[in-house]
Amino acid sequence: MSALLVEVSSISRSYSMRSGMFGRSTAVHAVDGVSLTIPKGDTLGLVGESGSGKSTTGRIVLGLEPPDRGEVRFDGKPMAILGTPAWRAQRARMQMIFQDPLGALDRRLPVATQIREPLDIHGLGASAEREDRVRELLRAVELTPAHGGRYPGALSGGQRQRIVLARALATKPDFLVCDEPVSALDVSIQAQVVNLLCDLQAQLGLTLLFISHDLRVVRQISNVVAVMYLGRIVEVGSADDLFARPEHPYTQALVSASPAPGRRSAGRIVLAGDPPNPAARPQGCAFHPRCPRAIARCASEVPVLSSVGGGRQVACHLVTGPRAETRDAA
């Protein structure tokens, strides 16, 4: 196994929320005891529905937010304190891409200037070299230097996301957090950006944390996938195996809910109820009120994420012990 670039050990983060003007403030546990590791050059996919804590996890991993508990280690060293020179040096090695490229770009600046900005901020290269680097980056994301003179408003959604990607790559980062990077794009453009990300990762040896609600896109790009539900990881496994043979009842429902051309909805698992409010998380396993297989123990005892063999980890009272031989062989 190659060395780990990112090690996240049992991080938690809660926010206090007041209900109404005179209401008592309650703690919302956005992330609760999440541990992850990403080897160098790998992609970890993080899936879950809204409110599952996947974006908060991404922000903590990037050091944009401190965890209440737990620790994030980057390249073997703990995350530097926010705002210090050490933090700045570390931050140049990690970048992020979000869902809305128009919101991430300044509409009043030509895009080439925006790609150049991180080079100026981190003082990388002489002025002329920076110009060259911008042209090189534009070519890397399959745009022409002519695109650099345009304003974000004059580019299509897919082109804007390429600009954001070029800017993120400017400092030659080792690690990229992508939070729903293709969710706002049409399917044909989405495929272009996904292919580009895969190519760039292979060329530059990037390590990715890829956050998305879209199982198809996550499977396409990830080596390992972690499924989150209400702030906790409920299942981890290799991408192909996890989606082919989900073990946790929630993962099973999620995979079954993903519509596929050529398959009628027969045999679909349709979960009852809404995803519960993170501010009022159920006792025991957070999924038990919607789980078709829940037993009495699920309502009282929180299941621990534990290995079931074959590189799979599951947090469910009903999934125990090593998986059947036939499954491991697959």
């Binding site: 299509s156 044909s188 495929a191 272009q192 996904v194 198809r216 499977r219 192909d240 596929a260 051309p261």
Partner: peptide, 24 residues
């Protein structure tokens, strides 16, 4: 054909997506 080819599969072997070049 392009729309269907651009959709990542959820099972079976992974293949490179056949993106439709250009934009609308």
């Amino acid at each position: 054909q392009g729309l269907i080819g651009a959709l990542p599969p959820l099972d079976g072997p992974r293949r490179r997506l056949t993106a439709i070049p250009g934009t609308v």
